[in-house]
Amino acid sequence: MNKENFPPNLSLEEREKKLLEMSDEEIDYSDIPPLDEDFFNNATLVNKRNLKLL
């Protein structure tokens, strides 16, 4: 996925439609860092059942 596929003037609905039409191979994940050992060592498990709605 590159920026030409998603110009800033697209509506949210248009962006969603384009994303749904794309295959996994077309999506560029290069700007997302890998989840390495440090990530999991610092992660906190959240139990949704115990969360209170504000």
Rank of each mutant, 00 (worst) to 15 (best):
N47F: 09
E25M: 07
F40M: 15
E26I: 01
P8D: 07
P34K: 06
N50Y: 11
L20S: 09
E26Q: 11
S11H: 02
D31T: 08
L53S: 09
A43Y: 08
L35S: 13
K3F: 04
E37D: 15
L12R: 10
K3I: 04
P8H: 06
D24M: 15
L12K: 11
N2W: 01
D36I: 05
I27T: 06
K17P: 00
K48A: 15
D24K: 15
F6Q: 03
K3L: 06
S30Q: 07
N41L: 06
R15C: 11
S11W: 01
T44F: 04
D36E: 15
L54K: 09
L54R: 08
N5G: 06
L35N: 12
E4S: 12
E16M: 07
L45D: 10
V46Y: 07
L35A: 14
E26F: 01
N5C: 09
P8Y: 03
N9V: 05
D38S: 14
I27K: 06
S30E: 06
E14T: 01
M1I: 07
I32P: 00
F39A: 11
L10R: 01
E4Y: 05
D38E: 15
D36K: 10
E26T: 02
E37R: 14
E21I: 03
L53N: 07
E37C: 09
L19V: 11
L10E: 01
N50I: 10
E26C: 02
E13H: 03
E26P: 00
N47M: 09
L53T: 07
I32C: 08
L35Y: 13
N41V: 02
E14F: 02
S11N: 03
F6G: 00
S23W: 04
K48I: 14
N41G: 04
I27S: 03
E25F: 07
L53C: 10
E37W: 11
K52M: 05
L45R: 10
E25T: 09
N5E: 14
E21S: 13
L45G: 05
R49A: 14
E13Y: 02
I32V: 15
L12G: 06
N47H: 12
Y29I: 11
R15A: 09
E13V: 03
L35G: 10
E25G: 09
K17Y: 04
K48V: 13
L35I: 15
D38A: 13
M22D: 04
P8K: 07
A43N: 07
K3S: 09
M22P: 00
L19E: 12
S23Q: 13
F39Q: 05
E16A: 07
K48F: 14
R15N: 09
P34S: 11
V46H: 08
P8W: 04
F40N: 12
